[in-house]
Design a protein around this nucleic acid. Sequence first.
DNA 1: TACATTTGCGTGTACGCACACGAGAATATG
DNA 2: CATATTCTCGTGTGCGTACACGCAAATGTA
Lengths: 350, 350
Amino acid sequence: MVTIHDIAKEAGVSIGTVDRVIHNRGGVSKKTEAKIEAIIKKHDFKINVIASSLALNKKFEVATLIPEFDTKNTFWKSSMMGISKAKEDVKKFGIKVNSYTFNQFKASSYISQFKKVIASKPDAVIFTPLFGAETKLLAKELDAKNIPYIFLNVNLEGFNNISFIGQDSYMSGVLSGKLMHLSLKDDCSIAIMQTRINVDNNHAIYNRISGFNDYFIDNNISTKRTKVTIFNLDDTTELKEKFNDMLNTTPTIKGIFVPSSRVFNFANCIDDLKIKDLSLIGFDGTEQNIKYLEAGKVSFLISQKPFKQGYESIKLITDYLIEKKQPVSKIYSPIEILTKENVKFSMELK
Amino acid sequence: MVTIHDIAKEAGVSIGTVDRVIHNRGGVSKKTEAKIEAIIKKHDFKINVIASSLALNKKFEVATLIPEFDTKNTFWKSSMMGISKAKEDVKKFGIKVNSYTFNQFKASSYISQFKKVIASKPDAVIFTPLFGAETKLLAKELDAKNIPYIFLNVNLEGFNNISFIGQDSYMSGVLSGKLMHLSLKDDCSIAIMQTRINVDNNHAIYNRISGFNDYFIDNNISTKRTKVTIFNLDDTTELKEKFNDMLNTTPTIKGIFVPSSRVFNFANCIDDLKIKDLSLIGFDGTEQNIKYLEAGKVSFLISQKPFKQGYESIKLITDYLIEKKQPVSKIYSPIEILTKENVKFSMELK
DNA sequence: TACATTTGCGTGTACGCACACGAGAATATG
DNA sequence: CATATTCTCGTGTGCGTACACGCAAATGTA
């Protein structure tokens, strides 16, 4: 392999000069520069990243800011695990990852944690921009300080983020529609369960529902669809009541579409009520959801591979910082269909 | 971060001695060794991989041997692309990848190419063990020379391969069964298209068919299934005739299960014959298959992500060679369901 | 014209961290 | 005491980075 020494020798200059040209740090005459560049191109010389990072010995600090998770909401746990895994991997490249979390239901928590992130003076930030208006202000600070940032899971337009990693939520809704349609006989109807509004990644949820509906509309499928709003998912009693009511009022309902990661709440409820023959489709391969998927209570889960998203975001920023690789602006995660049969190979947590 | 120097200083020895202990190259007194090891453990010292690989500057050579691809059989193209991508990535770690291919229909080609691989004196080999008996002999040679090897895509038992990367073909068949069942009304029947025997990864195909059938058996679904054997898939005329005959004889056939990557041949045929209302399910997201998937002629494709398999195999062997990481013995690729809706996010070729 | 100062262009090298080998010191064996 | 054996040290190497410094040409000044 060609080294910087070889280039220098061939150009009749010192390695220092070659280095200046490579990093265009100036102080090299046009003639010399052109000559060196020609030789570099000729041999297709690429910096040896190993030697480079050794020499740089730079300690980059990357901050991540995503919603916190608890037992009721384990979706973000996977993201965090992906981040943690990548953290180990990139440690050897001198990248330190500091993880921050915020309460996804409180803008104030988002703001204060974001402030902490900025105060830590990171070299790059990866975050989930759940609150639009707040993000606008906060991202401006990052812009001002020239700190590059990546949007994770949620995308907003009109920002200078170097990339977005997440799913096309509309399309995932369309796909859910298709799977739901396949799972049902023609004369059935469907309930679309809407949960708390304005929280929990609601933009995505809105898109999923649109996609879901559009599948039926675009394919001229007359299956009836009703929206049902539940206010407190954690209140099992309310949920059961509402559920029973709904099924009694509209006994044709055989499909339940839950456009969030809380499908397990419904599965649990159905299980308790000993209702059979319902097709449940929901999102995300969280532990709880998978439990019901494996038990056959949930037909399909659409996964956005949060582990991988977290992992990739760190990798991406690493490449950006070390090798100055400009990433593509949008990286769509695969829309993965999880079933009882394939879930154990899906590496949701790996 | 703690360096080898720090350890040496604290132990009151030179870095050379520490290095000997780390790599247990011997020549160190028990007392000194114990002392150094204690200090290493105390600080949880880990070798700096960057500096290590720079210092090692070892040029490992990895050979890959997989079936060749052509316009009719592009499945292996993806594997090769994954390998090529990884090749670039690991070049900086001083790993050189040499790719060999063989004609998957000729054992003689397999043997002669394998001989070439061995003659190139690789430090590790990644290959697809399509021919069982031949592999037994050839793997013995690798064992004798202490060359580690990985099975890619096809697994055989009773070998000293350090890992296998591929899909659980039985389970992918089960899943196909489920999807087929969902796609059909109850009174339909299914044709299982078998192609050339003993070639083309036949072990996997056998398992897929078993899984497919077992889905119906285990779930007490009475849908009729017929096996149909086609001898020459490339003979479009024969195919069309046979197809027409089949559908005329058994008009209830509404599902076509193709347990190989050649589903596009059937889709094409159906397209030409202007037959409607058939559900086709097949394997692998090759360009041709995807074309028909997107056009709605194929309902589902089961992908085993050959690109990723190829990519991962190189990464795995790299970790093994450089960091001496012992991989897990079997790495199952996800059983991915491709549909018209999600295929463009699936990164089949990335 | 003679000299000083600035600017431009390059050189040389210490450094990051681990590796491995030659050589020498310490200890053991006969 | 000489020789063999065991143990340890010191250092050059891999490759790129970045900074201090040197040299020469260009410009300024009297």
